[in-house]
Structure formats: structure tokens, C-alpha cells
């Protein structure tokens, strides 16, 4: 597909839709680029609002999380991300989690981000599906027939997440996977050549270690690893560790 001749976007632009954006701004504007978080399948901006947004703002970066339109395909979700990014006063850093990383990867082909971070990225749906079948067969098989994907606490969270907390999060996470969020289609070349970081946990039961390595290699690097954590790095008790490492990386790259 040509990135220059965009007949589909010219003839059938993505229609506008409501997009929920949660923001936390630093007390003083230090001219730092805003961070825009993009959630993956089954959760919304709230997952970042829990700990990360406040922490990021306290470290001097404007922090925003967008929940792309419900039921949108990959094209519509990437459109939502680019729309929100372009509405920010400065060139934004895009940070996607899970299938949200795939949305970010797609958005990077359309918007020259200041930098991008793919956290526990589901870029290759087949690897994620294999991992899900291994760790949670009963919850995954119905989804193959178009049913609801049921996660288990053991699948999504690391061992150090208290059971009741994990159960509370699970309540809010639910997803009916869309085929195109999982496809293996080529990811576009990021426009403007932004630095891209891949972060994740070797103990993530959704994104296997090999998938992290492949994702990082795709963007010319090695993954930043946080052993012992589960898939939802932003909801674990040690949530500060990965986000601090990401911000340190960002300060070095800017």
C-alpha cells in the first residue's frame, strides 16, 4: 500500500467519534513533550490513570491517555490516536500497551511522533494466541469462535499482585478480539524516524519473550525487560519501575 496515494482515506475518511481522553498535567510547563498512552484490547485509559499518568506528570511530562472508539477497527483506532496526538500543543510521544502497541505502530506510519514506546506489544497476533492457548485454554478457545475472551488472573498478572486486586482489575478487563488487531500485516515504517523502545516482561504470559525480541528487532533495538512482572506492567505493585525506566530513556533520547 502506498503511503503517499491514500485513496481510501481520500474517498472514505474515518468518521469522527467520541474519544475519551484522561489527562494529568505537570504543575509547571517545562517544555517537555506530552506522552500519549494507548490502551490495548479490553481495557481503557483508566489502566494508565491508576498509577502511571500521575507519576509521569510528577516527573514533568504532560500525560494523556486516549481510549480509542469502541468497536473501531485498526484503521479507526490509529486515526483516533493520530487525531488526539495532533491536538496536543507539542509533538507527542506515543506509548501503546498490548494491542494498543499495534495501534501505535500503525499510527507511527501517519504521525511523526517525538518518540514511541511499545509496552508488552502484541504486534504478532499468532504468537499472542499461542501463548494464550497455553496459559488459559478454557478462556481462549471460545473467542476463536467469535465469543468473548476470558482472561485469568494467572495469565495477566505477575505472582506479586494480591489476588483481590487482580480480581478487581479482571472485572474491568473484557474483550472481544477483532481479527485485524491480531493480524500479521506489515507495520508501516515510522515517519520522521522517531526513536522506538520496546519494553516488557520475560514472565509475561500474553507476550512471549521471543515476541518481545522480534518487536524490538523490528525497530532496531533490544527490549527493556522487567522480570517477575505480568502483562499489565502499569497495574502491578512495582509499576513505578518500568515507567521510570521509560522516562529515563526518553530524557536520554530527547
Amino acid at each position: 500500500m502506498s503511503e503517499i496515494l491514500r485513496f481510501r482515506d481520500w474517498a472514505e475518511p474515518v468518521p469522527p467519534a467520541a474519544r475519551e481522553v484522561v489527562s494529568k498535567l505537570p504543575e509547571a510547563d517545562e517544555g517537555r513533550p506530552p506522552l500519549l498512552f494507548v490502551p490495548g484490547l479490553g481495557h481503557g485509559g483508566w489502566a494508565f490513570a491508576e498509577h502511571w499518568l500521575g507519576h509521569v506528570a510528577a516527573r514533568g511530562f504532560p500525560a494523556h491517555a486516549v481510549t480509542p472508539r469502541a468497536g473501531g477497527d485498526l484503521r479507526a483506532q490509529a486515526h483516533d490516536v493520530v487525531q488526539v496526538a495532533a491536538s496536543l500543543p507539542r509533538q507527542a510521544v506515543l506509548i501503546g500497551h498490548g494491542t494498543g502497541a499495534r495501534v501505535v505502530a500503525r499510527a507511527l506510519g501517519r504521525y511523526p511522533a517525538r518518540a514511541a514506546v511499545l509496552v508488552a506489544p502484541v504486534l504478532d497476533g499468532w504468537a499472542a494466541l499461542g501463548a494464550a492457548l497455553r496459559s488459559n485454554p478454557a478462556g481462549t478457545v471460545p473467542a476463536l469462535a467469535g465469543g468473548r475472551l476470558r482472561f485469568s488472573a494467572r495469565q495477566l498478572f505477575g505472582a506479586n499482585v494480591p489476588a483481590e486486586e487482580a480480581a478487581a482489575h479482571l472485572e474491568r478487563i473484557g474483550a472481544r478480539p477483532r481479527a485485524d488487531l491480531f493480524g500479521r500485516a506489515d507495520l508501516p515504517e515510522p515517519v520522521g524516524g522517531p526513536p522506538v523502545l520496546v519494553a516488557g516482561s520475560p514472565d509475561d504470559r500474553v507476550v512471549p519473550r521471543a515476541a518481545l525480541d522480534r518487536a524490538a528487532a523490528r525497530y532496531g533495538g533490544a527490549p527493556l525487560l522487567f522480570p517477575g512482572m505480568g502483562h499489565y506492567l502499569m497495574l502491578e505493585p512495582s509499576w513505578a519501575e518500568p515507567i521510570d525506566a521509560v522516562l529515563d530513556w526518553l530524557l536520554k533520547e530527547l
Binding site: W10, P13, P15, P16, H79, V82, S87, R110, Y111
Partner: peptide
């Protein structure tokens, strides 16, 4: 119209 007018990497608001 907007899609044929905007910069390809900085869309106008879709609203």
C-alpha cells in the same frame, strides 16, 4: 475537502 487538503502527517480535527 479536509482529507484532500490537510498535511498527510498532521490531520485537521475530524470534527
Amino acid at each position: 475537502s479536509r482529507p484532500l487538503t490537510e498535511f498527510p502527517d498532521f490531520p485537521m480535527p475530524d470534527t
